[in-house]
């Protein structure tokens, strides 16, 4: 017996539909569990107070500060490097063997798993350069990790800037760099911001590379050479060592909520940018 293709078609459609919503369902379930379990343990005191007894009591203030320090400092380093690379790749060169090499480098960096960044940061920054477990070692490792994201998003954003804008700028006696500075980069800002937001999200959520470079000191990092603990690392230690499930859930709420907000903001900026040129 031959089944009517139309029925198969309808059946497949239904099946695919279910699977797509299943994926969204996973996200919703993850977020829902974290929020339901965690919100009772999250309040201003939790956010603003210091942990006590290895995190069994008290709050997560130092790890929030540590996370912000890590994210902002790595962005501060990676943005000029990444944007500069993107500008070079788009404005200053044609596709050649040289650009292929650079692209290979960027692609490869993007593919390296975070534990290898951890290994590298540990041996290079912590041991060989004698930085010890420190904010500085964490920041430098994280800078390299987020560089590919910044490069790719900036490159895409710069490529989307219409060529005529550049031509007009040149015709008004601008040099190449003046054109890039005054016309190309301003027009590409939303796309560049998206990359920055995504990178901040990555820095906030990263654990494997950070725990072996920045360490896991519970104290507030006051200098670049101080060790510190980001929220993700704190959460990992609380959960893994069974120190306190309540505090772990509480930390997870702050962690997941900040990452969701950062990513949503990134998505919003990107859509604005797309709307601008289409």
């Amino acid at each position: 017996m031959r089944i009517n293709p139309r029925y198969i078609n309808r059946l497949v459609r239904m099946g695919l539909n279910v699977q797509a919503y299943f994926t969204v369902g996973i996200l919703i379930i993850i977020v829902a569990i974290i929020f339901f379990k965690g919100f009772p343990h999250t309040n201003f005191a939790f956010i603003l107070s210091f942990p006590e007894d290895m995190g069994r009591e008290g709050g997560i203030f130092p790890s929030i500060v540590g996370t912000i320090q890590l994210a902002l400092l790595s962005i501060l380093l990676a943005t000029p490097l990444g944007l500069g690379t993107a500008i070079f790749l788009t404005e200053y060169t044609k596709e050649s063997l040289f650009t292929k090499f650079i692209r290979f480098g960027v692609e490869s960096l993007a593919g390296i798993p975070s534990i290898l960044y951890g290994l590298f940061g540990f041996i290079f920054f912590v041991i060989k350069l004698k930085m010890g477990w420190s904010l500085l070692a964490g920041v430098l490792t994280m800078t390299i990790m987020i560089l590919p994201t910044i490069i790719r998003t900036s490159e895409e954003a710069i490529r989307a800037v219409p060529r005529q804008l550049r031509i007009v700028s040149y015709s008004l006696s601008a040099s190449k760099w003046e054109t890039i500075k005054k016309v190309v980069i301003p027009a590409a800002i939303p796309g560049i911001l998206t990359g920055i937001m995504l990178s901040i999200g990555r820095a906030v959520g990263e654990t494997a590379a950070i725990i072996f470079t920045m360490g896991s000191s519970l104290r507030l990092p006051l200098s670049l050479m101080d060790s510190g603990r980001t929220m993700a690392v704190h959460f990992y230690i609380l959960a893994r060592e069974g120190i306190s499930m309540e505090k772990a859930y509480g930390t997870a709420v702050v962690l997941v909520l900040s990452i969701l907000l950062i990513n949503i903001l990134a998505y919003y900026i990107m859509n604005k940018a797309i709307a601008r040129y289409s």
Binding site: G205, T207, F235, V256
Partner: peptide, 18 residues
């Protein structure tokens, strides 16, 4: 759907592990 999938990518691996 698309943003939901991107957001799923942003969830830290420690949260998945937990």
């Amino acid at each position: 759907l698309k943003p939901a999938i991107e957001l799923l990518a942003g969830i830290p691996s420690v949260v998945f592990g937990f």
